[in-house]
Every structure is written in structure tokens, then in C-alpha cells.
Write a protein that binds this DNA or RNA. Structure first.
Lengths: 321, 321
DNA sequence: ATGAAAGCGCTAACAC
DNA sequence: GTGTTAGCGCTTTCAT
């Protein structure tokens, strides 16, 4: 019995001949080890959980990446929501962690920066990997993306098109990406020797509505920008909608750029120029980190991984008219 | 020990006093039963799987609904993809079903109409509930929506606005909703005494691209329609994009209507008039059906449930100019 | 390199 | 109404 276990878990110390025999028998019987028995007896549960508060296209792409990594390793992906607004998120977490004993939890913003969630996870001794965390970097393995460089590239693209007055819509405070994308924008504008009036930078929170509101303000100014760079695609969509509402012809009267390259960016009109963030790969990498550490104690130290973005030029950006 | 088990599973035959005592002790110790032990010993796994081939906004909304139902019942939701294009989907399913022994599988189109998937599921003795299945209705419990009635309402909305020449973009063959929505459209057009030229009905497959292509054909005709009703929101977005590309002013030069009311419908420009399909509730209902039958043998007969849609009028429909 | 024994934490079946 | 016993199907530990 133990020999079969060794073969099926790819453990050493089994003669090649015997291994083949076991494998053949397993195949003939179409035998599948029962996950519940494996996790009851052993240290691994073969389940990774993706914990989120709200599902955006960005998180959906991450989920798909995580799913792929799970599949490749014979793992399963569990999805769980948590209400950050509600009283105590740790109570909700308890049933997840203590009950199921998942091997690890995948966290993205904003959940990955909620102190209470992190404390609850640490308290339960649960492993977790974060994507683009804003704080306490040493607290867990994580994966991040070159936000600042990417934002700089996008800004340079707009400047290269001839724009001299560019508006920017920020992400919410507390999101690591928000500050970095703004820095990248600022850096590129200043490097080009352009004046950056502070009213060209409008606050947003990654929602469509906030993109509309920011556009309203920017386009209503005495000297409106000829291009607007929104920190994510959904806000860029809001900018586009507002511009249409104001009767502007895009992209001639206004260039609009986004960030993330969600599937809906290409469905906007005009199709949105944006920075492609390899979120599926990032989530897959994070999931692999979880799986690599599953059942191991002490948990292995895993170095952070950093990914790059790619400029995707579509029809929403053009030289100013 | 058995008494504790009874209390925690809300089984009868426990004195109220003792029950309270157990509950208090459980709380004091913050005790959580271990899912793997429960499913190894018992007949239930406390896990429902959502099996899909591709993730659309529609499926994401369903996932959220299923998640809510799982949460409420102390269940967990597992997500799994299956490649319908690939050789044999049953091989992929095997590891999911035999290994994890989920209590049930939630299936939506197009997966819910794939004969091979259904056969594999039946072969493994797995329970499944389908949403809007197109065939073999008695084969499993299912949930459906009033597609035909809803399509009729939408068409009446357009006719009521004064449109006399309305184009229609169908869904893919094999999707139960495709035929029903087309029937609803046909019924309303004929009831209004309008002539329905067959070239006003263009084939689509629920993708953005197919919506664009259909719009290209419809708007290029000698007598183009003044309104286009697409069978889902994504195709409606494609119609809108194509209309913008052709320089049409929406909604005056062309009214566009969709179906589903995904979150992106409201982000289009103009905001899309559509039929809201209560997909999250439908998925929740389907998940409850799975949970109700979990661990029971023979599986209880569960009557189908039917839901209604709601017309959501936004800015993309208006009287013809 | 292989295998025997013990037991993970519950529920099922059966006493009482 | 309550408690006892015997496993569920694996992995772990420890012999050999």
C-alpha cells in the first residue's frame, strides 16, 4: 500500500519496474486517490483559495491564471468572497481556513492590504501569497508588476504623439499601483520638460463612475487637456463615456489611455490604448509559490517576482487635432 | 462525540439544553469541523464545482450567485475549466469527480449542452444542475429564464418607440436562448403587423466580433434598420462599435438593444438598453438544488425553476430620427 | 527498496 | 435522547 502511495506521489525509493506496474494497474482500474483521505492523513489539502471582495475583470483574469497553475499541479481552486466593509472579516475567514485547511490563499488588492485579513491569516497559520501588495512586503511572498515604468512608457507614448497637456486620473489611496503609476506619469511629464499643473491630476478609485467624474472636471477646466491617462481601463471607459456625452470626437478632440488591458478595453469605442499587465501569469506564478510551499514546514523562503507590462496601442490615442 | 456531531449538523434528537452546552463549548474553543474528515467519513463533500469552458461576464455573475448560495449553506465553491474543443473532456473531468467527489456540478451553456460532459458526469454518478439547458431536459434538475417573453418585451419597446424596421442578431446554434429570443422577436414583429425580411436577421455567436460583423451587414443593406436588437450585451457592444465606426450618431441614427445586463452594458456609450437576466439568483437557485440533494440517495426529484427578466431602458434606444 | 501498523477527525450504524 | 464502535482511504512512522 505504501508503495502505491509512493508511486502516485512521485516519491523516490521505488524500483522502476515496480513503479511501472503500479502505474499500469492504476490506469487499468482508473484509480484516483481520494482527496479528502489524502488531506486528512497528510499535510496537504491540494486546494488553493482565491479570496476577493469584489470581482473585477482584472480579478477574473487573475482567477484564470491561478486556475491554470492549479490544474497543472493537480490542485483545485476555491473561490471565496470576504466583505471588507463588514464588521470583522476574520470571523468569515475562520470557517474557510480552519475548516478546509487550504494549502494557501491568493490575495490581490484591495484584500491583500487589509491588515485584519492578514492578521487572521497569520493567526491561523495559513500560507498566503500576495499580488501587488502595498505594504509589509516581507510579510509574505509576493508578485508585483513594473507599474512605474509602464506608466512612464504610456505617458511617453502620449507625449510622442504631440500632447503637451495631459490629464491623469489616479487610483484609490492604499493601492500600491496608484502611487507608482502616478510617479511614472509625473516622471515622464517632467522629463519632457512639460509643466504639470496639479489640477491635471484628478483622484479616482478604479470605478467607471470615478472616471466620468474626473473627466467632467478635467474637460471643464479653462484649458482642458488634449489627452487623459486613466490609471485603469474601467476609469478610462468612464472618461470615454463622458467625452462622448460632451460631444467630443475621439480620438481627435481627446486621446484616452487606460491601464490593465482587460478584455473590455478592445470593445470600447474607440478601442482603448492601454498597458497590458500580465495578470494571468502573475497569478499563476503566485499560485505556484503557494503550491511549492504546501505541506512544508518551515515554509520555504520564496523570492518576490516582478513582471513587465506591454504597451498596446489601439484607436483611442492619436495626435492632438 | 456523536452528540457533538448531531448538534453541529443540526440533526434532531438532542435535548435543547445539551445542544446549547455543545454550541457554547464549540464557540469557546473556536472549534471548526475538518471538512476532509467529514467528507471522508460521510456522504457529503461540502463542495460544489462550477465547470465552465470560457469565462464571460455572464458566467462571472453566475459564479457570484453560486458563491452566495454556498456561503449560506456552509459550502465551498470550486471552479474548474474544461476544454470543449480538446479531444476528450471526460478525461479531464475524471480527476475532478473521482478525486474530489464534489457534491454537485453547476453547468451553464455551452458546457451544459455538451453530450460528452453530461455522459461523463452521469457515468461517474455525479449530481449536476443546469442553467438554461437546450436539450434532454429530464436528464437533470435545471433552472431557466423566460427568454421568449423577454425578447418579445424588448421588441415591443422598440416598436413602441416608433421603429418599423428592426434588425436582429442571433446567438449561436445549440444555445437554448438563441432560438427562444429569436422567436420572441419574430412574434412581436409579426404581432405588430410589420414585415420581417429574413435579411434583417443576422447570425451571431455571442461575441463582440460577431456583433460587429452583423452590424456591418445590416447597416450596409439598401434599407438599413433604424434599430438593432442583439441577443446579448457583448454583441450589442459590437453593434455600437461598428455604428460609431460608420459615423452614425447614436441613438438618433440607430437604436441598439442588448440582452443580459452585464456590468458593462451601463459602461457603453450610449449606455445600453437591455433585458436584465437574474443570473445570479438563477445560479444561487441551482446551487441550492445541488446542496439540497447532497449525500442523498436516491437523489430527490427537483422541479425546474423559471425566472423572469426585466427591461432596463438606458440611452441606446430612442425614437427613430 | 519495501511493507506493516497506526491513526488523521469525523459520520454511520447500532446499541442502550 | 445519548453513547459506543467501527471504519472512510489515505499518509506517516517505523521495521525490515
Amino acid at each position: 500500500m505504501k508503495t502505491v502511495s509512493r508511486v502516485l506521489n512521485a516519491e523516490p525509493h521505488v524500483r522502476e519496474e515496480l513503479r511501472a506496474k503500479v502505474l499500469k494497474a492504476a490506469k487499468d482500474l482508473s484509480y484516483r486517490p481520494k482527496t479528502s483521505a489524502r488531506s486528512l492523513a497528510g499535510a496537504k489539502s491540494f486546494v488553493v483559495a482565491h479570496l476577493f471582495s469584489k470581482l473585477s475583470p482584472y480579478l477574473v483574469m487573475a482567477q484564470l491564471g491561478a486556475l491554470g497553475a492549479c490544474r497543472a499541479a493537480g490542485y483545485h481552486l476555491l473561490v471565496e468572497t470576504i466583505d471588507l466593509e463588514a464588521g470583522d472579516p476574520s470571523a468569515e475567514l475562520a470557517s474557510l481556513l480552519l475548516g478546509l485547511g487550504v494549502d494557501g490563499v491568493l490575495l490581490l488588492p484591495p484584500v491583500c492590504d487589509d491588515e485584519r485579513v492578514l492578521d487572521a491569516l497569520d493567526g491561523a497559520g495559513a500560507a498566503y501569497v500576495r499580488i501587488s501588495p502595498a505594504r509589509d512586503l516581507p510579510r509574505s511572498p509576493f508578485v508585483e508588476v513594473e507599474d512605474e515604468t509602464a506608466a512612464r512608457s504610456m505617458t511617453q507614448h502620449l507625449i510622442g504623439l504631440g500632447h503637451r497637456c495631459i490629464g491623469f486620473v489616479t487610483g484609490p489611496d492604499g493601492h500600491a499601483a496608484s502611487g507608482r503609476r502616478l510617479s511614472g506619469f509625473r516622471g515622464a511629464v517632467q522629463a519632457a520638460g512639460l509643466v504639470l499643473e496639479e489640477e491635471l491630476i484628478q483622484p479616482g478609485d478604479f470605478t467607471f463612475h470615478s472616471g466620468q467624474a474626473a473627466a467632467q472636471t478635467l474637460l471643464g477646466a479653462r484649458q482642458p487637456p488634449t489627452a487623459i491617462f486613466a490609471s485603469n481601463d474601467e476609469m478610462a471607459q468612464g472618461v470615454i463615456a463622458k467625452a462622448h456625452e460632451l460631444g467630443l470626437r475621439l480620438p481627435d478632440a481627446l486621446s484616452v489611455a487606460g491601464f490593465d488591458d482587460t478584455p473590455y478595453a478592445a470593445m470600447a469605442w474607440p478601442p482603448l490604448t492601454t498597458m497590458r499587465q500580465p495578470i494571468a501569469e502573475m497569478a499563476a506564478a503566485a499560485t505556484e509559490m503557494i503550491i511549492a510551499g504546501a505541506g512544508r514546514s518551515p515554509r520555504p523562503q520564496i523570492p518576490a517576482r516582478r513582471f513587465e507590462c506591454e504597451l498596446v496601442v489601439r484607436g483611442s490615442t492619436a495626435p492632438p487635432q
